[in-house]
Every structure is written in C-alpha cells, then in structure tokens.
Amino acid sequence: MDKQFCIFDMDGTLVDSMGYWKRLGREFLAQKGVTENVEPVLERIKPMTMTESAALFIESFALSGTPESIAAEMNAVMDEHYRRDVPLKPGADRYLQALRSRGARLCVATATPEPLARLCLERLGVADQFEFLLSCDAVGGGKDRPDVFFEAARRLGSAPADTAAFEDAIYAARTAKQAGFYTVGVYDENSAGRWMEMTALADETIRDWREAL
C-alpha cells in the first residue's frame, strides 16, 4: 500500500470490538423488555450512527426517550468496554508506525462517537498516530453515505484517488470505493461470511496486520 493519505475505520479494523457492538443492541433492547422482532432492526442499524440507531429503536419498539437519551444510555455501556477491555488487533500498532515512518498522514473516521473512540485509542497507545479522529456524527450520517470519507480527505488535503480507506465492513468499503477512494479491506471474524465479497471489491486486502508489513 503506497498511498500517503490514509483513513482508518476503528471498530473491526483497528480494534477487536465488533463482538461488543453486535451484542449491544440486543442486550440493550432486552433490558427494555424487547425480545421479539429484534433481528431485522439490528440488521438495519449496521450502517447507522448511534443516534440514528436510537431513533430507529424508538420508532420500531415505542421506547420512551429521545434519540439522544437512548444513544447516551448505549454509549455508557460501550464506554466501560472501551475503558477496560477492547483490544487492539495484533500488529495494528506496528503497521501504523510503519506508515508514519515513511511520511504517511493518517486519520480515523468512525461511526463510534468521537469521545469513545479517543478514549479507546488513547488507552491502547495509538491515538498519537493520527492527525485527527472524525465521527460520522460530525457529518450527520453513517458510512452508507460518503460524507465522512470526503470530509476526512478534505481535512487531510487529499483527493479520493490518492487516499486509502481501510474498512472491515463491506457496506463501508463499497461506499468508499464508489466515491473514488483506494479501498483496503481488513478481515474481521465478525464479518467473515462476506470476506470473499470484500476480496472482490477492495483494491487490496489485509487478513492480518502482522502479515501486512
């Protein structure tokens, strides 16, 4: 990968957190007494921001509260995981260091709220590898739209074709690809069933950070 500008997803790409996120919606709804017709809604929230997901929960299950208050409750659950036990994927730190050593400019674009993302990456000792962290909340939509990629490239001062977007989720990789970015698909066991689709879509793939150097 020879691009000098790089946009990294966080969850499932740099950190091994997708298992926590997959359980979060189901566990949160169960705490609210919602156990039926959950799976179709959980599938729909995959490309959404936390606030968008909360709004869909309210609409689908008549939960009390606002999208912001529901999102805050879910954020509180993930806050504990990011503070304590979400791990960095093996070799990711060395890969980032290698890019920086050759002058590449890096940022994070994530659906996770920026304070949670920063908390996690600082604990793991890699936050200083990035010029900035950008949350999808800041651009008003998830990675089913290209806004967050375009904004990240704007801040880096790069054109999409000169910028690599690292993603584990096929929908996000497809969005970046269609927007003209050089797309790097990163393997995550939580989306293993779509890996062949990712290898066909992405310009480059990384199955293990330790083997990518």
Results as ranks from 00 to 15, higher is better:
A72D: 12
K177R: 11
T163N: 07
F132S: 03
F57L: 04
R123L: 04
A152M: 05
K32H: 08
M198W: 03
S101C: 11
K89Q: 07
R154Q: 13
P87K: 15
V38H: 00
W195P: 05
R23V: 13
R118D: 14
D2L: 07
P90V: 14
V184N: 03
T35I: 10
R145E: 06
T51D: 07
R44F: 14
A117T: 08
I206K: 05
A200D: 12
A192N: 10
A76T: 02
S53K: 04
S53G: 10
A152K: 00
G103R: 09
Y182W: 11
E197L: 09
T66F: 15
Y187M: 01
R83P: 06
T175P: 03
A62R: 13
R194A: 12
S158T: 08
F5K: 13
P160M: 13
P160H: 09
T35D: 04
L63V: 05
S60P: 04
H81Y: 15
G157Q: 09
I45Q: 02
A200L: 14
R100M: 11
M198R: 01
F132E: 03
E204V: 08
C107Q: 01
M196K: 14
A173F: 02
I70P: 04
L133Q: 01
R145N: 05
G193K: 04
F150M: 10
R174A: 08
F130V: 05
A104G: 14
L133C: 09
R94H: 12
L156D: 15
P40T: 06
A104C: 14
W21Q: 04
P146M: 02
A169K: 06
A62E: 12
D93Y: 00
I7T: 03
E131M: 03
G141R: 01
F28H: 04
A55W: 02
E131V: 01
L119N: 10
V184G: 01
K22M: 08
F8V: 08
E204D: 15
A72R: 03
T112A: 09
A202K: 00
R83L: 13
T183Q: 10
Q178C: 13
L99C: 09
M78H: 07
A179G: 06
L96R: 08
I170Y: 06
A153H: 07
D203R: 06
V38M: 11
M48E: 12
M10S: 03
A72Y: 01
S64F: 10
M74W: 08
P146I: 02
M18T: 15
E39S: 00
